[in-house]
Design a protein around this nucleic acid. Sequence first.
DNA 1: TACTATATAGGGCTTACTCTTATATTCTTA
DNA 2: TAAGAATATAAGAGTAAGCCCTATATAGTA
Lengths: 153, 153
Amino acid sequence: MREVMKKMDIEMKLRGFEDRCRHNGLKVTPQRTAVYKALIGTDTHPTAEKVCKIVRQDISSISLDTVNRTLLTLAEIGAAFQVEGTGQPRRFDGGLEDHQHFRCIKCGKIVDFHYEPFDNIEIPVHLQGQFQIMRKTVYLEGICQTCSATTSS
Amino acid sequence: MREVMKKMDIEMKLRGFEDRCRHNGLKVTPQRTAVYKALIGTDTHPTAEKVCKIVRQDISSISLDTVNRTLLTLAEIGAAFQVEGTGQPRRFDGGLEDHQHFRCIKCGKIVDFHYEPFDNIEIPVHLQGQFQIMRKTVYLEGICQTCSATTSS
DNA sequence: TACTATATAGGGCTTACTCTTATATTCTTA
DNA sequence: TAAGAATATAAGAGTAAGCCCTATATAGTA
């Protein structure tokens, strides 16, 4: 019974995915579908490399480049998203005072801001047992003024 | 007057930095000091590459590897830190329901959790004009159970 | 001043990605 | 349902970030 439910759920998601592709003028290819399926079938926040390995069980000839490109496409059409901050070179910060970060997804710029209520977010108790938390922050992503000005022109 | 204050401030930080090095059994080298100075002299969250360019104005022969290593060292002794999530391969997430991420800084594992109060953090008004915010999340870093078990042994 | 431990420069290597191009596939519309 | 146009894919070369190794140099110490 459980299994049947799961299967139906996946079928529904796939249907929705195909619609989403078409609405965005994207073709529904076996590769795209397989990448999407692999991604929703895991909760491990995989890299392109890992997704590629999974997909190759079905489509052995798929290239890593296609997987990577497809994942990026999925993020663009809102069928998935990129885990915050990953995929960029390492960056450092010499400001040790309490502050938070905003990152522009177009130009990659990181801007400090400080909003006192964010300094001491309360961590739910059930996590405190599970992890040794060393850092907690509110992290914002979006488009900065410069980039939104450039885009609209 | 302002300038003088700034200079004193930097001097103080440098003094503190040297102490911090010694307390951690690290030698105070011109390279280390220069990297630290470059980092606290900017608010742009630079990559190792950028810090290297700045430092080379003083020490033209410094290698990128040294800069990178030094920045990592600064983070270890708490004289700086690494911007959350940067420096890792891109990762994707197919779960579109509201949730937040914890990332283990040892093994890199990313774990989902969900704490409803975090779903709709209020963004301060002064930021709403400045940025077009597309995503906001609470992001936690620390050490997971597996890793803290391994480390203690 | 000399000795020991640690740091650095340099260069080669790996990994994660990106770009280019020729071929293949989807979707449309006639 | 066949043909054409637009888009996607595979493959492979190219690039950027970061890591590792080793010989030399330097800081801290006694």
